[in-house]
Design a protein around this nucleic acid. Structure first.
Length: 499
DNA sequence: CTTAGGG
DNA sequence: CCCTAAG
């Protein structure tokens, strides 16, 4: 990675950071999304950029245990070498030590630690510029506060006051190095650095009274930091400035918490707004963008509901309870509801159990149940017993245990069976080969279906069957002759009914 | 509510 | 499997 690339990326980061800082100030509930978005950016960048720092996480514990500088040097040098630095210096080591500690602590910095992030992002920045390389006895070519990313691209960039170094640090600070001071507290010789951190944090924070006498804070800050336990968040040391940052922190916290959930995509937001445009009755209480996040998981359900009820004028976007009522024909839904409720879910798949009841109700199509052979047999038995068209009776008697088969399903299945039997006859005559079904029904079943079809002709299907018969010719006649007198009467009744 | 028919 | 119309 060359220096130019590094600088370019750092500058990008800088811009992002500035954006973040600005967005935090006016951040309100409605701006959570944007804030969240902005927040997300640096995080990703951090992950992608500081691969070198990651190395230090493993050594973090050791550094803490020893808590002295030599240890830091050791690991810092290691890191430098690993990072591909051309000329690791002592200062490099120190810096890397800090970085590694920071990065390791980063994992411990949860939502609450975010507040200090920005402050210390700025802190790191100026701290490096103004103090690190001038005041520290190391007197080394610095190296590397921002450098681990790229190696040691430019030692000159770290000379005090150079913006280049600042930019690099900005990138680092985005990684939320709040614990930086903690780590330094453990090192006696680094107290001064800690002080500088705090000072610059305050100075650079737009919410705070700026600079000038920030050096005077040093004793106090050092004290505070020394009091800090390594495990304690640094936020306490800048608690005096929390007033200005409370709102920002709250927003950040909320944003981060929201990120715990699935973040709605821009497309979803657009779709949601479109849906809302259709939902004229919806109240304004749902404008809260959190509702978007919350309803995001139900997005597909809503879309499906909307699709099912194109004529519906009003759909309340917020009340999920209203979803079942969307259906004009809620009979089926009610039945399903009952059946699902009474079903022990043992036969349901895990996935279905995890999903909400509603989704299960609306996603019948999604989990299409294949008809088993036993089910087909039951259906055929039921038809032979009750006749074609009495689907509710068949369902009630024979399919009471299988809740997911509605009378409509039985009828549809019967329709398909008729088609299959017709195809069977057709194929028998034409080529003799079995129909190209994925799960070919046994010929015995198809034969039964065919007989039943002759006995109990399906009203509409009969015409298609007739065409079939017309093609087949005499083939269907024998089966017809096999029909029993009882069925004959039934069929005649049926036929009269239909015709 | 149930069924038929089409998608 | 879903939706709608009709009885």
């Amino acid at each position: 990675m060359d220096c130019d690339e590094h600088m370019r990326r750092c500058s990008i980061k800088k811009c992002q950071r500035v954006q973040v800082d600005e967005s935090f100030v006016p951040a309100l509930q409605d701006d959570l999304m944007e804030v969240e978005h902005l927040l997300a950016e640096p995080r990703n960048d951090h992950v992608s950029v500081d691969g070198v720092w990651y190395f230090h996480e493993q050594n973090l514990g050791k550094c803490y245990d020893i808590g002295n500088l030599p240890c830091g040097f050791e690991f810092g040098l290691k890191s430098n070498i690993g990072g591909g630095l051309d000329s690791p210096k002592t200062q490099d080591a120190k810096d890397d030590l800090k970085l590694e500690v920071l990065d390791g602590l980063l994992e411990d910095v949860k939502i609450d630690g975010l507040q200090a992030t920005d402050a210390f992002s700025n802190a790191c920045e100026d701290y490096l510029l103004d103090f690190e390389f001038t005041d520290k006895a190391c007197g080394l070519e610095s190296g590397t506060y921002g450098q681990p990313v790229t190696g040691n691209s430019s030692s000159e960039s770290h000379s005090p006051g150079l913006s280049g170094s600042s930019i690099c640090v900005g990138g680092i600070s985005e990684s939320r190095k709040q614990p930086i001071a903690q780590s330094e507290c453990s090192n006696d010789s680094l107290d001064m650095k800690v002080t500088c951190h705090l000072d610059d944090a305050f100075r650079n924070n737009p919410c705070l009274q700026s600079n000038g006498d920030y050096m005077h804070h040093n004793p106090l800050d050092i004290q505070n930091l020394n009091e800090l336990d390594n495990d304690r968040p640094l936020t306490g040391s800048i608690s005096s400035h929390e007033n200005e940052m409370v709102s920002v922190e709250a927003c950040q916290t909320a944003a981060l918490r929201e990120k715990r959930f699935r973040r709605p995509t821009q497309r979803y937001i657009e779709e949601f707004s479109n849906l809302r445009s259709k939902e004229k009755v919806c109240t304004a209480a749902t404008k809260n963008k959190q509702s978007i996040v919350k309803s995001h998981n139900d997005h597909h359900i809503r879309l499906k509901a909307l699709r099912k009820t194109p004529g519906e004028k009003s759909i309340c976007g917020t009340s999920d309870v209203a979803l079942p009522q969307l259906r004009i024909h809620n009979r089926r839904l009610k039945k399903e509801e009952l059946e699902y409720d009474e079903e022990p879910f043992a036969s349901e798949s895990e996935y279905e159990f995890i999903t909400t009841k509603r989704s299960r109700k609306n996603d019948r199509r999604k989990h299409q149940r294949m008809w088993t052979l036993s089910e087909v047999n039951k259906l055929v038995d039921g038809i032979s017993e009750y006749g074609v068209g009495r689907w509710t009776d068949i369902k009630r008697v024979l399919f009471s245990s299988t809740s997911y088969r509605t009378p409509i399903d039985l009828r549809d299945k019967w329709r398909n069976l008729l088609r299959a039997s017709c195809a069977l006859k057709f194929n028998k005559r034409e080529t003799g080969k079995q129909e190209h079904a994925l799960r070919p029904l046994p010929i015995a079943v198809l034969r039964r279906v065919r007989e039943l079809a002759d006995i109990h002709p399906y009203p509409r299907e009969r015409s298609s069957k007739k065409s079939c018969i017309g093609q087949v010719g005499s083939l269907s006649l024998p089966s017809q002759s096999k029909s029993t007198p009882i069925s004959h009467s039934k069929r005649n009744v049926r036929r009269n009914k239909c015709t």
